[in-house]
């Protein structure tokens, strides 16, 4: 008998929690394929290393990139490989709880659960990402008080208000940390005339990116290809110009948080002022972002303890208490 599993199928990273055991897998949600034959060549970290460096016959893709499933077949294969790697086969048949972006459609949901069942899961259930994040971030969601959680991932940002074990208000947008990378890429191209890859842009973001001025800021050197000469070239980027480059993305993420606040019933809104809102997800680690949200909403923002693991932790809790938490699964409320 295989042990039951909880999966955080993120736009950037996939994590798997095994019942009674803990996190058994944590890697980028990337798959590399042979363009001609459609064969899978690599997944996870190995495939991630290929992004932007593949010869013509290989493609390395993130199937959930925009918080939507663009290619069902590829997504299905990724899920099957994932389950195989953690020991699921037709004979072991574990129960599986999967976290998906709340923006995905009914058809996409069915594709995910079907893929898990075909890969050998006895039962596959979905749970909303911000709900899992709130459980994992250790918020007192069993009480009749307003808990607010903001999950900023690669392709999506989801804000939710949770009380008494259920979602009261939810605002999900298909904007996230990948868009910050893209904004940096576009800026460097436009202002410095050099082309840089997606992974280089991500490195710049992590090294000097910020949503508000912070102490001890430094510059970064970035290498790319000169658009005029076609030759490698190095330029220096400052934190101010990166802030300027990513401002549109940052403000649209904050706008979605504000919209969620506006959707919350007034009784709960009072609670936020006292308890604050909790930030989870890799995108929430951007320097100065918590302060920016705090300033623009007038609500205190706190970083959760395990921002990158919160979602899988919450889903893991659901697999440990499967029967008691059954009515939290997405299919249950229809």
């Amino acid at each position: 008998m295989a042990r039951d599993l909880a999966i955080d199928l993120g736009t950037a990273n996939t994590l798997v929690y095994m019942k009674g055991k803990g996190i058994v897998l944590n890697e980028p949600s990337v798959i590399a394929l042979n363009r001609q034959t459609g064969e899978v060549l690599a997944t996870g970290r190995e495939a991630w290393q290929m992004i932007g460096r593949t010869p013509g016959y290989i493609v390395a893709v993130r199937p959930l990139r925009g918080g939507a499933i663009t290619d069902f077949e590829i997504t299905e294969r990724m899920i099957r490989l994932l389950l195989q790697r953690v020991g699921v086969s037709r004979f072991t048949r574990p129960k599986v709880v999967i976290c998906v972006p709340s923006a995905i459609t009914e058809v996409e949901r069915r594709a995910v659960t079907d893929a898990a069942r075909r890969a050998g899961a006895a039962d596959a259930q979905l749970i909303e990402q911000p709900m899992a994040a709130a459980i994992g971030a250790d918020l007192p969601i069993d009480e009749p008080v307003g808990n607010m959680v903001i999950d900023i991932g690669g392709g999506t940002s989801e804000t939710a208000v949770i009380s008494l074990g259920g979602i009261v208000a939810l605002e999900a947008v298909r904007v996230g940390s990948f868009d910050i990378d893209a904004a940096i890429q576009a800026y460097v191209r436009r202002e410095h005339g050099i082309a840089i890859g997606e992974r280089t842009a991500e490195e710049v973001k992590m090294a000097i990116g910020s949503a508000a001025p912070t102490e001890d800021e430094s510059q970064a050197e970035v290498r790319g290809r000169d658009l005029m000469t076609g030759l490698p070239k190095t330029v220096i980027l400052t934190p101010e110009e990166i802030r300027f480059a990513i401002e549109d993305v940052v403000s649209s993420i904050i706008a979605s948080v504000v919209r969620c606040l506006a959707k919350a019933p007034p009784e709960l809104a009072q609670d936020f002022l006292v308890r604050g809102m909790y930030l989870v997800g890799g995108g929430g680690l951007l320097r100065g972002l918590a302060q920016r949200i705090e300033r623009e909403t007038q609500v205190p923002v706190k970083m959760s303890n395990m921002p990158l693991e919160a979602v899988v932790l919450g889903a893991g809790h659901c697999i440990e208490h499967y029967d008691a938490l059954k009515n939290m699964f997405m299919g249950a409320r229809r």
């Binding site: 929690y17 250790d138 440990e320 208490h321």
Partner: peptide
């Protein structure tokens, strides 16, 4: 459902 979401119940996984 609510009891399963209590901080005590959640401690194990954390």
């Amino acid at each position: 459902h609510i009891d399963a979401l209590s901080p005590e119940a959640r401690r194990e996984v954390h």
